[in-house]
Every structure is written in C-alpha cells, then in structure tokens.
Design a protein around this nucleic acid. Structure first.
Lengths: 219, 219
DNA sequence: AATTATTTTTAGGTAAATCTAAAAATAATT
DNA sequence: AATTATTTTTAGATTTACCTAAAAATAATT
C-alpha cells in the first residue's frame, strides 16, 4: 500500500504528538499541520479506513502498529537525509530540516538502505535525535552531563541537577530550559568554564557549576 | 514562482519532445505523460498563463525561455541524482531512473549546488547524457562509448578503442564499421552485454568487451 | 472540392485535500 | 444541575488534476 505526502505528514505529526501525551486531539493536529480542525477530521476518517490509526469521534486518535511502522520509516528517512546533508554536503545542522521534509517522502526502499550503508549506519542525526534502523528500532538516548559534552556536538537540555530556586533563577535569566538546544564552542581549562551557543544567539560563557547542573541528550 | 510536480513533469516532457521536432502536439504529450488529450489541453492553458510556454489552439506548443530554464533545472537535478545513485550508492545504471524521477522534484537550490560539488561537477550522467551546469549549459557530446549510449538512441559508429586484428576481424564479421548506424535495444545487467539493432537487420547481442571498444556519436 | 478521418478543444463531472460556517458533543464554570 | 465555553464534527464549496463524451477544427482521401 502506498500513501500520499499529505497522509504521511499526518502520520508523522501524530507520531510526534503522541510521544508526549497518549491520545492526540484534533486541534493539536490542526495546529501542528497548519490546517483547520475540519480538515483534520476528514483526514482521520480516511486514515482510519486505511487502518493506520484508531479513531473514534470526539475521542482523539492513536496510531495502530501499522501506523507506527509507517511513522518510523518516515522518521528514519528524514534523519538519514539530515545526516547526509550535514556530513556529506556540508550543510549547517540548522538549515537541513526543510530539505529533509521533502526528501523524507521519496519512496524507494532500496534508496534508504543504500543511503544508510553509505553513511555508515549512523545512530543519531545532526540534531542528536536517534535514527530508527531498518526494523524501526532506535538507540536509547543516554543523558550526559553538559560538562562532558564534546565540543561542537549539538545537544538538547533534558534535565537539571537540582530544583533549587537559585538555579532556576539563573536558567531563566540565561533563557535556558528543558528542550533548549545548544552546543559547546570552547572549553576553558583555567576555571572549567565553557562557552556555549544557542541557535540564533551569540555564544556566551557559563560556569563549571552551572554546566554540572545541566543534563543534555545525547550525544 | 513555484510549480507543482505535475507542472514540472509537463515542462520536462515538452522539453524532451521538442528536441526532435519543433512544436509538440497535444496527443504526443498525452502519450508521453500517460494521460488524455483533454487533460493536456487544460494544463497547457495553465502553463501558458504562467508564461512557461507559447500555445495557440490547435497549433501545438513550444517552451518559452522561462520554460526552457525550468526544464534544464529539472533535467540537471535528474541527472545529478542519477550520477549520485550510481557513483556513491552503487545502484546499477539501469535501476536509477524511477528514483531520479522522484528526486528531481526536490526544490532546494542549495541542495543541487552542493550535490554537484560533492560529486565533482560531473559532465555526463550514467547513461551518457550531458548534465546541464548551474547556468543550464550542457557539454557537447562528442564521442560516447557504446556501452554508455542510452537505449533507443540512434548513433553512428565514430571510432574504435583499439586497432587489434582480433577486434577488426570481429567487426568485419558483424558488418560493423565507421559510419554504421545503430541503436541499443536492451542492456543486460547479468554480463553487461547489449542488444543492438542496425537498420534493416534483426537485433543481435554483442559482448561488454566489444561494446567498450566502440565509440559512437548520437545522430 | 467534398467527404471522411483524425486531432484538439469544450463541456460537464469526479476525487483529493482544503476551506468557512453552522450544528453537535464534550468540558468548564457558575 | 444549568449555563456557558470550547472542541469537534458535519454540510456545503473551492481548487487541482484528472476523466468521458460530444463538438469543433484541422488533415487526409477520394
């Protein structure tokens, strides 16, 4: 069975949204896909008929095993292409997403497998997200202390080492939160401070104490 | 301005058909695109409004400069991707066309330029067809190895790769000489032998070794 | 030149994916 | 529990690319 680009985008969006919560609502989907709730309802009926998800009126939606399989195949393609663009074509990691959104819909199975081999079966994409293998299995992302993150390796803040108001005050001031994506540009051995860069911001330095209080994933 | 995949396929088809003849007819296009004449008429009106071609009722169609530019950009992408698939991903040259038909519609200009650089600015694709450069210019095909001649492309034998008596003996036996016109009907990947057809003769097969020893000029 | 055959266009309709506006169901609040 | 607010669905239209069948234009043949 084959699916349209639109159908694939719905499946992918549901997949991402249901990571956080269980069932995904019509409005959430409409927001994610920049469309209207009425359009979503129509499409959900269609995808239900194709057995990609379970859906009952007013009760939200959840992917079937078939749907998950399809979602993982699309995510796999998306992340492999991102890896290709950065590693082989010298794109910056912050400019590959749009292109990969198009490339992920190229259908050839053989292409995906050969691309994977050509790239050396990478486990993580340039943003640090795990790449599903040909069976849909993803490597587990281990949490690393920010102080141990290698230079120039993109990571996402995934946790903090304490809940103290002092720490939170500092994080708020620096605009760092869970999900903030950053990379280390330099490490200074004198005081173990590190210079970090957040997308669209100028690099700035943080102390060893702060770095040790932050956990990131991966790489 | 941006164009749908369907529109791009029309432009590409017109480009290829008008190489041979001047104006392209509605029926020719319908056959090429596996659609019906009525659908073609509809689309021609649309493409005319977008200034990609000149079209007058019942008089066939011809690409404008804009249209040619677009066609060359698509052909460029198609052939670069074919080169990538064969050269980097180890596809056979006979299994890349379908995949390239999808990849040629990826829109990112930056991707095309970076891919071209990554591949080392190749001048010909794996079928021996010239790859337009970023300005739309194509290398002139002087002589091509017979093994690289596209299927169903009429060509004239223009040279041999060696002067050995063994080769000449074989050529004499097969009635092949300088100036002989032939075309390839099939290529067999098992032993890379090819089936060729010479005017007024039944097709026959020649070995990879012989094909590689022959140079031809497309007519 | 008149008739026949072919090609091309028009007219009217379908399916996919979208929309707006209104109705129905669910959730939140008084 | 009743009312209000929000979410979701239905109903009816629109756009793109396609279709069939009939009409119009062009080409071929007698």
């Amino acid at each position: 069975m084959s699916f349209s680009i639109t159908e694939e985008n719905y499946i992918k969006a549901i997949f991402h949204l249901q990571q956080a919560e269980g069932n995904v609502s019509t409005n959430e989907l409409a927001a994610e896909l920049h469309t209207k709730a009425a359009s979503v309802t129509d499409m959900l009926k269609k995808l239900k008929a194709k057995k990609l998800l379970s859906y009952e009126k007013y009760k939200g939606v959840r992917l079937s095993n078939e749907g998950k399989k399809l979602a993982l195949a699309i995510v796999r393609k998306h992340r492999l292409w991102e890896y290709f663009l950065v590693d082989k074509l010298q794109f910056g990691w912050d400019e590959v997403h749009e292109v990969a959104e198009e490339l992920e819909h190229i259908s050839s199975k053989k292409l995906v497998e050969k691309l994977d081999a050509f790239l050396g079966y990478p486990k993580f994409d340039p943003h640090g997200d795990p790449i599903p293998d040909s069976h849909g299995k993803m490597a587990v992302q281990v949490q690393v202390n920010l102080i141990d993150l290698p230079v120039n390796r993109l990571a996402e803040v995934s946790g903090v080492g304490s809940q103290s108001t002092e720490l939170l005050e500092l994080l708020k001031h620096k605009h760092i939160g869970i999900g903030t994506r950053l990379e280390i540009k330099r490490k200074f051995s004198f005081d173990h401070s590190i210079e970090i860069k957040i997308r669209n911001q100028n690099p700035f330095t943080i102390s060893q104490q702060l770095a040790q209080a932050l956990f990131v994933k991966p790489v």
